[in-house]
């Protein structure tokens, strides 16, 4: 069986690093893996979507609507935006982090106040992870992505992989310890 995961966030949040580490771990486990990312038009500020599929044999690298077993969202309204991609019975892991898009900043649109409550009403399996807050407490908000990686790995039950070794190899050297703590915190949440 092929499993499909979508990671969504905003440019600069580190979704691609998370996907890269996840892919490497899945290969270590012996799966065929495909990962797809769309580089937006801007370095920062736009919605970023990364997709990962794994199984015995994967053909299409793209996850279509209604196909995702798991959506991991780094920003709460991006979780809502991605919801059509969730498979029936699938799970959403979302941070509560808010990043205001330009139409909200300029007053042309409103940022939804109760996005997570409404999401929970519509989708049975929603796991809220305060990853940004945890990373902030650890001393570097950029570790948000690794907190979410920890939560994701736990949710998928992908245990017998040296995740911490992979994290260490894929983050800047001076941030290794901090990111290992971030992974642990995410895993325990």
């Amino acid at each position: 069986m092929t499993k499909a995961i979508i990671l969504v966030g905003v440019g600069g949040q580190g979704t691609i690093t998370t996907s890269t580490i996840l892919s490497k771990g899945l290969i270590e486990k012996g799966y065929d893996v495909k990962m797809s990312e769309i580089h937006g038009m801007s370095q920062r500020g736009g919605t970023v979507v990364t997709q990962i599929k794994y199984g015995d044999k994967v053909y299409s690298p793209i996850v279509g609507e209604g196909e995702a077993d798991l959506i991991v969202s780094f920003e709460k309204i991006e979780a809502v935006r991605a919801i059509p991609y969730l498979k029936e019975g699938g799970t959403v892991i979302t941070d509560t982090r808010e990043i205001l898009p330009m139409p909200v900043l300029t007053g042309a649109a409103e940022y939804p106040k109760d996005a997570i409550d409404e999401l929970k009403k519509a989708v049975p399996n929603v796991i809220v992870v305060e990853a940004y807050k945890v990373a902030e407490e650890l001393g570097n908000v950029k570790a948000q992505n690794i907190v979410l990686l920890g939560a994701l790995v736990k949710q998928l039950g992908l245990d017998d992989v040296d995740w911490k070794g992979l994290v260490a190899k894929n983050v800047p050297e001076k941030l290794v310890d901090l990111n290992l703590s971030a992974f642990e915190k995410g895993y325990q949440m």
Binding site: S42, R44, G45, T47, P101, A109, Y111
Partner: peptide, 10 residues
């Protein structure tokens, strides 16, 4: 029930 605002690249 949630109206998600667009997030254009900026």
């Amino acid at each position: 029930t949630v109206n998600v605002p667009a997030r254009p690249p900026v």
